[in-house]
Simulated assay, not measured.
Amino acid sequence: MYSIQQLASLAGTTTRTLRHYDAIGLLVASRDVNGYRRYSSSDAERLQLILLYRTLDVPLDQIEELLDSTTFNRIDVLSGHIEALRQKAAYFAQLAETAEATLTSLKGGIPMDDKSLFNGLSYEEIQAHEAKHQDEVQERWGDSTAYKTAQERASTRSKEDWERINQMQLDLIAPLVDLFRSQVAIEDDRVQSIVKDNHLFIDTHFYDCSLDMFSGLGQMYVADERFTEFYDRFEPGLAAYYNEAIQYYCIANS
């Protein structure tokens, strides 16, 4: 059996998130004689699936319906996730290389020319990546409002627009790295201001990002090792720090 702290550490999430899942009936803990939450191996397996679904922006109420369905099969669900995640691995590995090279440059190492800043983020590369996964994206999110909004906004952008937006994304990471290195608490107004800016950035440039969806993005940063690696290339532990800051923001503003 796991305590709530042990399971949160094992899954790379927060105890606040587990308490929320317990409260809404998505991941209900048992209680010991002292009233403390306890989780079994089966609970850990269920949490893994919850976090996987959250990486795909599936709302919590729909996740509960899927997991509690009489036709639910864990093997089939995991098999469906594996191929999609593997297909994205190469793309995010390239983004990680770009982030690492950028950080080296910022630290006074090997200078990067302006074009190198956008390796994996250029208009042509993004277009190629999206085309490769268009069928998968359409199947999973084609009927969602977020997908339709993102598509409408993307259709009006030029190459210059995309590269400007991608540079904005990189610029949003830099102050978060500084605060993390200074061990500033996630509740600090400076951290929460950056999280708010990131939330607004997604909401403005991509799709109407609800707090529930934003929370899911944060979970993705620690649930998928490729996303974790991307942020941790800036500073080890940044992904977990950013996720906790996002979860705090979402709860505080709900």
Rank of each mutant, 00 (worst) to 15 (best):
Y231D: 05
L211E: 11
M213Y: 10
S210V: 03
S210N: 05
H205F: 12
F214H: 09
F206V: 08
D212G: 15
L238C: 00
G237W: 01
G218L: 03
D224F: 13
L200Q: 12
F234N: 04
D232P: 08
D212F: 04
L200T: 13
G216M: 07
A223M: 08
C209N: 07
Y221E: 06
E235T: 13
F201Q: 01
G237E: 01
S215V: 04
R233C: 03
S210D: 04
D212K: 07
F227I: 07
Y207D: 01
D212L: 10
M220Q: 12
T204H: 05
I202W: 03
G237D: 00
G216C: 08
M213F: 10
F230Y: 11
P236R: 02
F230A: 05
L217S: 12
F201D: 03
V222I: 07
R226S: 15
E229H: 13
D232V: 05
N198F: 02
E229P: 06
I202Y: 08
L200A: 14
F230K: 07
M213K: 14
Q219I: 14
D232S: 06
C209K: 02
F234R: 03
V222E: 11
F206L: 13
G237P: 00
Y207F: 13
E235K: 06
Y231F: 13
D208I: 07
T204Y: 02
D203H: 05
R226G: 15
Q219G: 15
P236T: 01
F234C: 02
Y207S: 03
F206Q: 07
D224V: 15
L217V: 14
F230G: 04
G218V: 02
Y231W: 13
A223G: 09
D208G: 07
D224I: 14
S215E: 09
F214S: 09
E225D: 15
G237Y: 00
Y221I: 09
D208L: 10
I202E: 08
I202R: 05
D197E: 12
E229K: 13
C209F: 00
E235L: 01
G218Y: 01
A223D: 07
D203R: 03
T228R: 11
L200S: 13
M213E: 10
F206H: 11
E225T: 15
L217I: 15
E235Y: 05
H205C: 08
D232N: 14
R233H: 02
H199A: 04
G237R: 00
F234H: 07
F201Y: 04
